[in-house]
């Protein structure tokens, strides 16, 4: 059983020490949601506030997006740039985003203090809604979600509910290969060992279909898209100052019309922009209001990169970016 309480205490202590010693300007972490069991992002600037920080399976956000905003902040006229380091609490999957950001020179390593937690899995918010139906409405305040190796334990006012892991576990956690942080200054939690290698099981079904069936599947999914661009905005690696889809000069790449053609163009281009960079943190799919399986596109390219070029992003800041490098011996079958 993972002791979330002890880990939370440890996070608070570390955060407090960092803020008191002026090691960091502020700490980006999670706090308890006001009316929700899903924790929400919070920025702690004062050592006295560190008790607000929490760590539990409901900490779903990838906070590195806030780190990117900090790094790209342009001081206003007359404002002194503050280049002090920032503290951030990350899950192992989010720590891969930081590796990628360091690799791409967006985040200088010395400007970030990483408090990393080990993690066996977070909850899927969509699945949580279904599970919560089993708990009486008036008892849903003050819910705590805990988990051990086989099940999630939802503690609520006057009882507890045990849910088998697959019923609540986030999709991305089912295929996760990094339960331990890949980059960190402080690690909190025990090292987790014995997890299985990624077998790309979620792609197998689609890959076994005929091209026409595959197109049908994607047409159905993509036609739902309202192009709210939430997937782009939540992605920690979509940090371009001016996104190609927002560009209007010398011409627009994409129409404002929401149809399969334009949506498909958007999703394919987005996937290509993230090829060899996407670390499969799952934010795009989580924030999608119409539940398009966006991760599948990214994961297909993740798999291709691994098969073709033995590249798996987010593991080592010293690696070369996939599209920024080449190997003379790359396979040549397209010609």
């Amino acid at each position: 059983m993972v002791d979330y309480n002890a880990m939370t205490q440890e996070i608070r202590a570390k955060a407090k020490a960092m803020l008191e010693n002026k090691e960091v300007k502020y700490i980006i972490g999670w706090e308890r949601g006001a009316n929700s069991f899903i924790s929400r992002p919070v920025i702690i600037r004062d050592a006295g506030d560190t008790d607000r920080l929490v760590w539990n399976p409901g900490c779903v956000d990838n906070l590195t997006r806030y780190l990117v905003e900090e790094m790209q902040y342009k001081p206003k006229r007359g404002e002194e740039p503050d280049l002090g380091p920032v503290g951030i609490i990350v899950k192992p999957c989010d720590s891969k985003s930081i590796v990628e950001l360091i690799k791409e020179n967006i985040v200088p390593r010395e400007r970030v203090k990483i408090i990393a937690v080990t993690n066996i899995g977070t909850v899927e918010t969509n699945k949580l809604r279904k599970v919560l139906q089993k708990i009486p409405q008036d008892k849903r305040a003050g819910i705590d979600i805990l988990q051990d190796d086989n099940e999630f334990i939802i503690k609520y006012d006057g009882g507890e509910l045990k849910v088998p892991r697959p019923e609540l576990l986030a999709n991305k956690c089912e295929t996760c290969v990094t339960h331990n942080p890949v980059i960190h200054d402080v690690v909190i939690g025990d090292k987790i060992e014995g997890f299985e290698a990624d077998k790309w099981a979620d792609l197998a079904e689609l890959e076994s279909m005929s091209p026409e069936e595959r197109w049908k599947f994607w047409e159905d999914q993509i036609s739902k898209c309202v192009r709210c661009y939430a997937c782009r905005d939540s992605c920690s690696l979509c940090y371009c100052a001016e996104c190609v889809f927002d560009k209007e000069k010398p011409f627009t790449w994409i129409d404002k019309t929401v149809d399969v053609s334009n949506n498909m163009f958007y999703h394919l281009v987005r996937a290509m922009h993230l090829a060899g960079r996407c670390v499969d943190c799952g934010e795009c799919e989580r924030v999608c209001p119409v539940n398009i399986p966006i991760r599948k596109l990214n994961r297909l390219l993740l798999k291709s990169a691994k098969d073709r070029y033995k590249i798996y992003p987010g593991m080592n800041p010293e690696d070369k970016p996939m599209f920024g490098s080449y190997d003379i011996a790359d396979p040549d079958e397209v010609v």
Binding site: M209, W218, M272, Y326
Partner: peptide, 22 residues
């Protein structure tokens, strides 16, 4: 080295075209 870069990019593109059924 331009064509080596092209080779990588476009091989990935052809993969994703196949995956989406185009």
């Amino acid at each position: 080295e331009g064509n080596y870069h092209a080779r990588r990019k476009l091989a990935m593109l052809s993969d994703i075209l196949e995956f989406t059924g185009i």
